[in-house]
Amino acid sequence: MSKYLLNKFLYTIDRDPELVERYREDAAGTVSWWEQELANEILNCHTGERSTWLSFTDEERRALREHDHVALFGLGAHPFLTLTLFIAMFERDHGPLEYQKAYGRALQHLSLPYPDIAT
């Protein structure tokens, strides 16, 4: 499991409106494409340098493909990254603050100590 890779996915998708739409419409395809093409690029490195070892676990892939923010949080994804990305994808389908409240309700069963979100 790589909390770094989960957070990197959420961060990079959220920063590009076209990728947000792609992920909203075709989560499985976007996750597969991103893992193959971008997962091993060095974040914020413009020299073409790449690593070779990063990949999602089956559990991470499933949570990303299903837009399962509760499972992602349990896997160590930072809640602010999932919240901002998922607001960009799903807030338009709901009234004012409805999505944010539903997001919080879905996590309310969790109690301290929360999963470690440090990378």
Rank of each mutant, 00 (worst) to 15 (best):
K3L: 00
Y4R: 12
L6Q: 02
L6H: 07
K8C: 01
K8G: 00
F9R: 03
F9P: 03
F9E: 02
Y11R: 14
T12L: 11
T12H: 02
T12A: 02
R15Y: 08
D16C: 08
D16T: 13
D16R: 12
P17K: 11
V20D: 01
V20Q: 11
E21V: 05
E21A: 09
R22S: 13
R24M: 01
R24N: 01
R24W: 03
D26I: 01
D26Q: 11
A27M: 03
A27E: 04
A28K: 13
V31C: 08
V31E: 09
S32N: 10
W33T: 04
W34N: 02
W34A: 04
W34L: 04
E35L: 05
E35R: 09
Q36W: 00
E41I: 08
L43R: 11
H46T: 10
T47I: 03
G48P: 10
R50H: 12
S51A: 13
T52H: 12
T52D: 13
T52R: 10
T52K: 08
L54Q: 13
T57H: 05
D58I: 01
E59K: 14
E60G: 07
R61E: 10
E66I: 00
D68M: 05
V70Q: 06
V70H: 10
L75Q: 10
G76S: 03
A77W: 05
A77N: 05
P79V: 10
F80H: 12
F80E: 15
F80R: 07
L81D: 13
L83K: 14
I87M: 09
I87G: 02
A88L: 11
M89A: 10
M89F: 01
F90H: 10
F90G: 06
E91V: 05
H94Y: 13
H94A: 11
L97N: 15
L97D: 13
A102R: 13
A102P: 00
A102C: 00
G104Q: 12
A106V: 02
L107N: 04
L107E: 01
H109P: 00
H109Y: 11
L110I: 08
L112R: 14
P115T: 05
P115I: 03
I117N: 06
A118F: 10
